[in-house]
């Protein structure tokens, strides 16, 4: 009896061992299949990422080349234009015969050093007249070609500073152009230096023109 029982127990143990081994193999196989599926999805993800990166590189290249194209050209013309505009306005006659007011440049000089001077009886003072004359000439020029924002800044060759430490300058035109960073196409002329002798003293002024599209 006991021998039979023993042999049955042994058979049962073997069966259990076999089942356990099958279970282990099954789990390992499942794990391998799952891992290979995981790897496949990862490779798909990486190829998608690669495609996105390539597209981004192409878009970036296109934007860079287009940006480069828009900035090329027109530099010589614009430099000539802004410098000629400053010179032409300054050399134009005002219509007054007083030596302090004959040309626009004389008027600017007068407006900086003697702003209260009057070019004739019943005529506005130099500062007001300079403002009016330049505004009028720029409007005439704008009507003949195209209107633009402009600013004439007049500073002395020697540095004179106001109490806040800023150099004293005479500005005629659109003051926002001086500090504005939003104006896309802002053009600066070369400073025009004009000198004048008053008595035994020599005075020098620097005039610069800034223009921008309206």
């Amino acid at each position: 009896m006991s021998g039979e029982i023993n042999s049955r127990n042994e058979e049962g143990d073997k069966k259990r061992e076999g089942e356990q081994k099958t279970e282990v193999v099954k789990r390992r196989l499942l794990a391998r299949i799952q891992a290979s599926c995981h790897l496949r999805s990862k490779s798909a993800q990486s190829s998608m990422l690669l495609i996105v990166i390539v597209i981004m590189i192409f878009v970036g290249l296109a934007v860079f080349l287009l940006g480069l194209a828009s900035t090329v050209g027109g530099n010589e013309f614009t430099a000539l234009y802004v410098n000629n505009l400053l010179l032409s306005v300054m050399r134009t006659d005002t219509g007054y015969t007083d030596s302090k007011c004959k040309l626009v440049s004389d008027l600017v000089f007068c407006a900086y050093f003697t702003p209260e001077w009057q070019c004739g009886p019943g005529v506005p003072n130099c500062l007001e007249l300079a403002n009016n004359t330049i505004t009028n000439y720029m409007a005439i020029f704008g009507n003949a070609t195209k209107s633009m924002k402009y600013l004439f800044t007049v500073t002395p060759a020697f540095v004179v500073r106001d109490p806040s430490g800023e150099p004293i300058s005479l500005d005629i035109g659109d003051n926002t152009l001086k500090k504005s960073k939003t104006d896309t196409l802002k053009l600066y002329s070369h400073p025009l230096v004009i000198s004048k002798s008053v008595g035994s003293n020599q005075y020098t002024l620097k005039i610069q023109l800034i223009i921008s599209k309206k």
Partner: peptide, 20 residues
């Protein structure tokens, strides 16, 4: 076509005018 700011000297009136 391009416009350039220039001056025109009027010989008879001896005045310099703005021009294009």
């Amino acid at each position: 076509g391009q416009n350039f700011p220039v001056n025109v000297y009027r010989k008879v009136s001896d005045k310099t005018a703005l021009g294009v």
